[in-house]
């Protein structure tokens, strides 16, 4: 799998990808590689660089410390990298959770009869009518905050719009003639769900999942920033940003600027991946 991915990549390097599909795939690959590097960097980097070093406090960005150091002399580049890595991890768990809930509820609404559909649609509307952030804070607060609270909170709040999309897709494919034919060929509901319906919604699910990521990451950072999320000794971006606020007025702009910028770049990268996958499978633009 990995070797084949690499091979494709090599091809693309030799000559600029020749058609839109290849270009899109190329962008997706580059984005994924970038994200993997960030995650691995955060995990593998030398923890020694963030021990307190009072001799080297409040240093502006330099070659030694790309993003400068903070009031305890910790290297901001390392902290940012670890923060991003943590954010992506939390985002991954949150997005997987949300996407699973969306898949389950969407399928259930479309296949389990009128009552289930009404109930689930009502639930979707209920969740959509309250801003994410408010529900998220409520849930995280009830669960006592911390890693567990925030992850469960994220998973429980981000599914409604994706669930709605999946419900519509399943409804549409269920009434397709080829699915009806399949029933009359004596295929079971399970067989049809597995062979006809899942392959049909898989691309939508993937896009939805990818586009959930940036949301989840930003909301995690926001809640942590407000002090209701991850605990202060975790190297999370939200924590870094909220701590830096105090020092901004004293001219130490780099404390908030670089971590904030990096968060933005990561979020945009996920957005890019999602949008490009969408382009890749959009039937209206399939032949461009």
């Amino acid at each position: 799998m990995i070797s084949s991915l690499k091979l494709k990549n090599k091809d693309n390097h030799k000559q600029l990808p020749s058609n839109r599909k290849k270009r899109t795939l190329f962008i997706i690959l580059i984005s994924i590689i970038f994200l993997v590097i960030v995650i691995l960097g955060g995990v593998l980097i030398d923890e020694g660089r963030i021990v307190t070093n009072l001799n080297d406090r409040n240093a502006p960005p330099s070659l030694d410390h790309l993003f400068g150091t903070d009031w305890l002399g910790r290297d901001m580049f390392t902290r940012t990298l670890m923060g991003l890595s943590l954010s992506i991890g939390v985002g991954l768990i949150g997005a997987i959770g949300s996407a699973s809930i969306a898949l389950f509820l969407g399928m259930a609404a479309a296949t389990m009869g009128k009552m289930a559909d009404r109930l689930i649609s009502w639930l979707i509307d209920l969740f959509l009518s309250v801003p994410h952030l408010v529900t998220l804070i409520l849930i995280a607060f009830t669960l006592g905050g911390g890693f567990k609270g925030i992850v469960i909170g994220l998973a429980l709040t981000h599914w409604p719009s994706l669930a709605r999309v999946i419900r519509a897709e399943v409804m549409q494919v269920r009434s397709a003639e080829y699915v009806q034919v399949s029933q009359k060929m004596g295929k079971s509901q399970w067989w049809i769900a597995l062979h006809h319906i899942l392959p049909h919604i898989a691309p939508q699910l993937l896009i939805g999942f990818m586009l959930l990521f940036p949301h989840v990451i930003l909301h995690e950072a926001a809640v942590t920033f407000l002090g209701l999320g991850l605990s202060p000794h975790e190297p999370a971006i939200g924590i870094i940003l909220s701590e830096s606020m105090k020092y901004l007025s004293s001219g130490m702009w780099w404390l908030a600027f670089f971590p904030g910028l990096c968060l933005l770049i990561i979020v945009r990268t996920f957005d890019q991946i999602g949008e490009n996958i969408r382009l890749l499978i959009d039937p209206n633009r399939a032949q461009d």
Binding site: A176, E177, Y178, V181, K184, M185, G186
Partner: peptide, 14 residues
């Protein structure tokens, strides 16, 4: 398996 099978007008939809 249904003993009565239907064939539709538009094969690409079936």
């Amino acid at each position: 398996y249904h003993p009565v099978q239907l064939i539709f007008q538009h094969p690409e939809k079936a």
